[in-house]
């Protein structure tokens, strides 16, 4: 068995190829290992978050933030809801400006109407609350802004407004059964001293669409809406 030229050519060529392949493999794998330890900055995917609709203006969000902070939804405070005096102070805006903030919610929200001096929900009210609650989409917070009446004493109206807000909250809790409900619902109960609604709010979706609506009736109410803003 003698080694001929062609055999040597083959052996040299083979050795050269395998060496080239091996060196390349080692270099490439080591380069990958280096990149692994020092990765390039890559664009990160957006993180899932709540909706942010155009009506979430800085002014709107400022009020929202103050309400949420003061009313127990954000942070560790145990209190639930805000009383009228708090709202007037924390919102730091006029009645008209406060009501105007909610105007973009005319389609998203609804107004639940009550009988005079009563906090009981009728069938139409329950149906409308259910509908609005289930239409959450990307919203984070559900707001209940209850009102008492334009007449009567301040204290009586505050108490009535509070009861109405609770009636809506109880109805929502019946629908959802969610133990984390309290972290989603923001409640305000307003007395007659702040942000009473003008008659044009009768044009909003109400729980008594076929009944007469006037400035008295529209303030015996609770405004409900999901709010599509991030904070």
């Amino acid at each position: 068995m003698k080694l001929q030229t062609h055999a040597i050519v083959g052996a040299v060529a083979g050795a050269a190829l395998v060496t080239a392949v091996s060196v390349t493999v080692r270099t490439e794998v080591r380069a990958a290992a280096t990149r692994l330890d020092n990765p390039n900055a890559t664009p990160t995917a957006a993180v899932a978050d709540h909706a942010e609709e155009p009506y979430c203006t800085p002014a709107f969000k400022q009020v929202l933030q103050r309400v949420l902070n003061a009313c127990g939804l954000v942070g560790t405070e145990s209190r639930r809801g805000c009383q009228p005096a708090d709202v007037k102070n924390l919102a730091s805006i006029s009645d008209e400006d406060f009501n105007a903030l909610f105007l973009p919610l005319s389609k998203r929200g609804a107004i639940i109407l009550f009988d005079e001096g009563s906090e009981k929900l009728d069938a139409g009210a329950k149906k409308l609350i259910d509908e609005r609650w289930l239409d959450r989409r990307g919203a984070r917070y559900f707001f209940i802004v209850a009102r008492g009446s334009k007449t009567g004493t301040v204290d009586k109206n505050r108490a009535l407004s509070h009861k109405r807000a609770n009636s809506v909250l109880f109805q929502v809790s019946e629908v959802t059964k969610d133990p984390a409900l309290e972290k989603q619902v923001g409640m305000l109960w307003l007395g007659k001293e702040f942000a009473q609604l003008p008659k044009q709010f009768c044009e909003w979706p109400t729980s008594r669409e076929n009944k007469d609506c006037d400035e008295q009736a529209i303030n015996r109410s609770a405004f409900v809406s999901w709010v599509d803003c991030r904070l």
């Binding site: 001929q4 030229t5 062609h6 055999a7 050519v9 083959g10 052996a11 060529a13 083979g14 190829l17 395998v18």
Partner: peptide, 12 residues
């Protein structure tokens, strides 16, 4: 391997 082997066959 086959490239080197074919080359050897071609030369031989």
């Amino acid at each position: 391997f086959f490239a080197a082997f074919a080359l050897a066959l071609l030369v031989g």
